[in-house]
Design a protein around this nucleic acid. Sequence first.
DNA 1: AAAAGTATCAACCGCATTTAC
DNA 2: CGTAAATGCGGTTGATACTTT
Length: 261
Amino acid sequence: MEENKREKKTEGKRGLWKAEEDLILKNYVETHGEGNWAKVSKLLGLKRGGKSCRLRWKNYLRPNIKRGAMSKEEEDLIIRMHNLLGNRWSLIAGRLPGRTDNEVKNYWNTHLNKKTSVLGKRKGKAIAESNHQSIPNHQNNTNTNIAIENQGGEEPIAPPPAELPMISSPKTTTDDEGPVGLLKVDGLTDNTWMERAVRCFDYDYDNNYEIETPLMMMNKNLNYAHIVFDEEPFTPCLDSFVLFEAFGTDSDLGKTQSFLP
DNA sequence: AAAAGTATCAACCGCATTTAC
DNA sequence: CGTAAATGCGGTTGATACTTT
């Protein structure tokens, strides 16, 4: 197993988990369930902190962990989701059954980052660090046709279809957040809807899972600057739908629609 | 064959958020 | 409601494996 690779030189150190430790932790969690990590190491006599136990379980010991090389499909999904979400490894991994955030992160950093220069200006850190100080200039943002760049010169991602999404039946909720709309993109497969979302919204995002469109940010004074993508659309079964919440009033939503491509 | 350089990835760290009290 | 503890996340490190010279 992986943990044996470096065992020789890390013996006696805290570093790599040994098979005995794994067995103890695995047995315990399978019996008592996850959680209370801080108590686990004490109870089990492991010289590991709670965080370390949690990490080991989450990344290696829990059932259905998938090991081995990423498939082309997985790699493709990582690239697409990274385009959309940035370095939100946990979210991305959540859409890859059996893969962990650490694994996805490592895979990106070692395999994909170097061969994929996708929409650099949109990457999480740069956007997050901007902390909303830099509102994209719509005049410079002529890219309703944002390029999804070729990955490693092999298989370029197909451009999104020419037709644009339609808002269907936006409705008002009773909560304080304002109206919730359902953006329906008919006839898309799960391989194309994300590019559609990128292209059609020309999005940026911040640390709070919000995705802002420059088109809307330039109209922030109208109080409908934020679109929040629900996580669910990332599941294949909902591939044709992009849920969003529009912060603002009903009338704002009406205006919002008019600004959508 | 061996030294040097590079790639990989498990584990750790610090910080932010959530939960418990 | 305020504080402390626990949890979760993303960035980074460093040991080892692999490749090149």
